[in-house]
Design a protein around this nucleic acid. Structure first.
Lengths: 350, 350
DNA sequence: ACCAGGATGGAGAGCGCTCTCCATCGTTAC
DNA sequence: GTAACGATGGAGAGCGCTCTCCATCCTGGT
């Protein structure tokens, strides 16, 4: 004696809901998507039927006709560093930098029902996989975080015609929207602070020269110091790791023992510098003032806590997400960029 | 004079490829998916047509019929902590713990063409969103990382009939596979080390009691110390943050000034303890030996570097992914658990 | 009383793909 | 020489949804 109830375990479809509600598929769809007018009582009936059947729309089916997936790719790209060491993903993820960016993006996307798909593009093959994924229409757009300047991914994504927004200005001009920080202004803030605290023999630990942000922070700092009457600023190049900051500081002290102020291009290196300074018996900030950059967790994880230039990563990532959705919404939207102002966060180190 | 070439900008479909290759849709599909035999020369023709058209399969369409999405959800769940503070996502992500888990999962999933979708379930609403997403079939399964024991999510996911694997044993028995560390054994390693280094007045800074791993680490440590003839171990409860470790150490020193060894339930708290010890003028490891847990980046970011119990997070996350795919492949697969052994990593602090 | 026109529900055509049948063909065994 | 069978390609039916038409009904103007 079987009626035509749907089989027990099958997930209910629009059809099932329509049958229960005694209306057509189209009407149920209208109620769900809130398009056009549907008489209130019918709406109510449909809602009840949805609840009764426990219906949830099938994403793939909807996606097939709307050509929207409701997801975006969050792509971390760039050179993998030393091959054969830890896997790229671990390294990237272990860096709180990436975590904060992801968090900021999620904060904006989630209320809109969109979820990011995590991807990495550290090798040419991985890059191809990402491009293929995007071309398949598996995501409506991409949030691109490049760790190195010469990354070909932004260009490839643009060529694939996929909406995308970049973290930081691309090294070579590319028609893609991006969000960035006013790095030079940030470095200037650091320089001003150091000078205001009476520092006269200031040095810097920069980031890798092949990263545009490093260059900007370095030259911005140098220029600002020059304006303050210090045309020559000793410097060493680090690679954004704590170790490189520590090593850099040792080198700096060896060459310029009378240093009384240091600007490091990120907090991790500043933290390393703190370690080196302690080894040399220098008090921070009394003997040597230290300023970092980013205001990440490292800034408060050390003693003294770091005075640092805050980069509002969550906000910036949120803005990326906002821009991306705008580009998805309107494919003809013009390419734009949003530059965030840095803020000096004063703590104990300077 | 228009032929029936597909319009310029439209993405080519199977149909287009079939037309170009002069075969049927089914044959092209067979070549792409490598099912059944297709004569080598026809295969070649089809491949050429695919290349010529630049065809990529449409994921939604495929997904609609196969009932597979080729993606899994990576859900971070648990209480959001102090409401109104930083968004939950940022806090979670800023913790390298989560990053390493994500990285480990990606390392296993990516070669298999599967990508994780990032989701958070810190509030009831967010939880509903996650469940809805999963019930929609938007992901083939879920990797669940709960930060708190009483989290209802694992049960809800199981009830929804979605394949899932949990990080760490669930607080209340739930029919779900999980991957965990032998926390007690790890704590034992720490106890043995402390005793071997001649420590007699040992204390501990535990994690929050509502986290099962904390309990296990604590009781494992206590039991091991008892076996070594130290039935009473003073302890304070922290919450896995550096600050709580620092505060906890201060409290411990106030109450037991003669402490000569400390076991902290994670590296961050151990790092905080180091700070407090320095404030009190205690040398590490000479006056007080310190052992952490996790072997995360914090372990090498401080001085002295931490002796710590290594938790192979990447491997564990990879195993979660492996288990999940197995469950997706075979829905009747029995629920299992995999427990990883800890390793003591000896550095300077103990 | 009649018709124009707005409001609202239903029918049905796909979206691009997989997969089950079925047709065809070449081959082997008797 | 022919029946039988394995190998291989094609046809076509959906998967669950959206959206364009179209039919129907109600309203008001004359």
């Amino acid at each position: 004696m079987s009626t035509d109830l749907p089989p027990a375990q099958a997930t209910p479809t629009l059809e099932d809901v329509a049958r229960v509600a005694g209306v057509s598929r189209a009407t149920v769809s209208r109620v769900i998507n809130g398009v056009r007018n549907v008489a209130p009582d019918i709406q109510e009936t449909v809602r009840r039927a949805i609840a009764a059947t426990g219906y949830v729309p099938n994403r793939a089916a909807r996606s097939l006709v709307t050509r929207r997936t409701g997801s975006v790719a969050l792509v971390v790209s760039g050179a993998g560093g030393d091959e054969g060491a830890e896997p790229f993903e671990s390294k990237v993820f272990a860096d709180p930098f990436f975590g904060r960016v992801a968090g900021g993006a999620v904060a904006y996307l989630r209320p809109r029902g969109i979820h990011p798909v995590l991807m990495f593009a550290e090798t040419p093959q991985a890059r191809d996989q990402v491009i293929g994924y995007l071309r398949q229409g598996s995501a409506d757009g991409a949030l691109l975080v490049s760790t190195h300047g010469e990354d070909p991914l932004p260009r490839l994504v643009v060529e694939a015609g996929v909406p995308a927004v970049l973290w930081a200005r691309p090294a070579r001009p590319t028609p893609i929207s991006y969000v960035d920080l006013a790095h030079r202004a940030g470095a200037e803030l650091a320089a001003d602070r150091l000078v205001a605290r009476g520092r006269r023999r200031v040095a810097t630990i920069s980031g890798p020269f092949d990263v545009r942000a490093s260059q900007d922070r370095l030259s911005g700092f140098q220029d600002a110091m020059a304006r303050h009457g210090h045309p020559y600023i000793p410097g060493v190049e680090g690679n954004f790791t704590q170790d490189s900051g520590e090593a850099g500081m040792h080198r700096l002290l060896a060459e310029h023992p009378d240093i009384d102020g240091v600007f490091a291009a990120n907090d991790l290196m500043a933290q390393g510098a703190l370690l080196a300074l302690r080894d040399h018996g220098r008090a921070v900030p009394d003997d040597v003032a230290v300023i970092g950059f980013d205001d990440g967790s490292a800034a408060t994880a050390c003693r003294p806590q770091l005075t640092t230039v805050r980069q509002p990563m969550e906000d910036m990532a949120g803005e990326m997400a906002r821009l991306l959705l705008a580009h998805i919404e309107d494919p003809d939207l013009q390419v734009t960029s949003v530059i965030f102002p840095p803020v000096l966060v004063v703590r104990q180190s300077a």
